[in-house]
Design a binder for these strands. Structure first.
Lengths: 122, 122
DNA sequence: TGTTGACTTAAACCATAGTTCAAGTCGTAT
DNA sequence: ATACGACTTGAACTATGGTTTAAGTCAACA
């Protein structure tokens, strides 16, 4: 199994190393292994977890909620139902936010049209 | 012309009064009038501007950029081109962010499916 | 006339999400 | 052997976007 350094993991996900250290400190990356020198090493499983964390972060889930989710993963099968419910609720929140952005974009498009018209007919 | 109090303006846009005061202090609401008692009064024009500010805020434009935009509005017609360019750039940023969220949502949907399957077949 | 309720101010406070710093360790390539 | 780059730590620092507080003013209604 291939292990990655923090630099490789960060490059793979296009985020700064410092963010990964911060996430670990916040408890989003439990069970992260170290080599003999004390350096973080990322297994495929940890890369997958980090990918999930990034999905949640990219959709604006607060760190505290991501931590709850990760804690449930560590806790095991007994939390499957809670995890499913959390993901369903989050999905709806994301859809709502996308809808708000899309709606607000209409106001922006309206400005663009008006400015373009004013500049064009001058 | 109907004027609104800060409470009415806030209720119309479903935001706290304190946010409107904060936006005014940040310079997002220049030319906002006051009544004899010193209270803010919102004309239809100011309501429209506030609506635009909310569109920009809802699409995650930083306060400092919104201020630049409002400053250009106050400056007048000579800034039309810059405003158009700013709105076009912002529109692209919003589309990019929606795309990222939509993509990240796929990872979440995948989790939902897996959890649902695991819970269903048990 | 007096008590509400909505408003005013400036300044302090808060949460969130990182980033930066200083000082030090490790392993490999020359 | 040593220099280099990538890594380590904890703590301090930053930026952003508000919210809260304290003390006070004002207009209208009972």
């Amino acid at each position: 199994m291939k292990y990655r350094s923090i630099g490789e993991a960060a490059a793979a996900l296009d985020i700064p190393d410092s963010t990964i250290r911060y996430y670990e400190k916040m408890g989003l990356l439990p069970l992260l292994e170290r080599d003999k020198a004390g350096r973080r090493i990322f297994s495929d499983d940890q890369m997958a977890l980090l990918g999930t964390v990034m999905c949640l972060k990219n959709t604006h889930m607060p760190i505290s909620d991501i931590k709850q989710y990760v804690d449930w993963i560590v806790e095991g099968e007994s939390t499957l139902e809670r995890r499913l419910e959390m993901m369903n609720r989050h999905k709806q929140a994301v859809l709502d936010e996308i809808a708000l952005m899309t709606e607000s974009l209409k106001g922006i498009d309206y400005k663009i049209e008006r400015y373009a018209r004013q500049l064009g007919k001058k």
